[in-house]
Amino acid sequence: MSRLTSRFSRLKEENRKGLIVYITAGCPDFATTLRAVRAAEAMGADIIELGIPFSDPMADGPVIQKAAVLALQAGATSRKVLELVGLIRRETDIPVLAMTYVNTILQYGVAGFARDFGAAGMDGVIVPDLPAEEADILEGYRQAGIDVIQFIAPTTAPERIAANCRLASGFIYCISNTGVTGVREVDYREIGRLLDSARRHTPVPLALGFGIGDARAAQAAAQYADAVIVGSAVMDKLMTEGLDGMSRLVAEIRRGLDEGA
């Protein structure tokens, strides 16, 4: 059983909601990212989504764009993210996914990326500009033990939900509202209906992200999902208040999720 699958099984047994924390690798430096991963885990994160910074992140809002700029200015590269995955794996078993735009994988080399990052202990990839239509370029990833996370968006039609569910493994990334990443007020009921229909097609866990910035929003979103994903709010805290501020936010959201259960 993969680290991701066993983490979701345990959450189910404990009747708890999962917390997926996104952290841009190398922002402001890799030592901080390693500490941030450990701090997030200590405060109750179940899964880490490690962002590989990219120069043109078209699915990301201002906060994660800024984090990518800082990371790239400090010299972040795919190879350094790879080293970081290895360092994380030496210290903890927490599932780690890479959030990466497809060009990063293509330029690293599709097969080499799976081989190297898989060997370092990475569990999956989230590629925001790789819809199901193009996902076959990552053929072989699942056999190599790397889940290729599929998406459901508010605009995804019923027949597409079924098709995306068929490709899914690890979990399904459900996008709460039309837009880019960033904290905002969201009515989760609408996407909740799509999640209900996805459940009829797949047993793969559903994680809901985009817009979630605090414990209250996480609670509201978690009603419909097996896990919530928090990214921009975490990076905003990390960039403005440092590790302590980030840790407090993760702890608050964890408490919110546990109280809501």
Binding site: D129, L130, P131, E134, T155, A157, N164
Partner: peptide
């Protein structure tokens, strides 16, 4: 070519 875009815009 291709369609390397977020799921949100694929239906459009």
């Amino acid at each position: 070519g291709g369609q390397f875009v977020p799921e949100t815009v694929m239906p459009s």
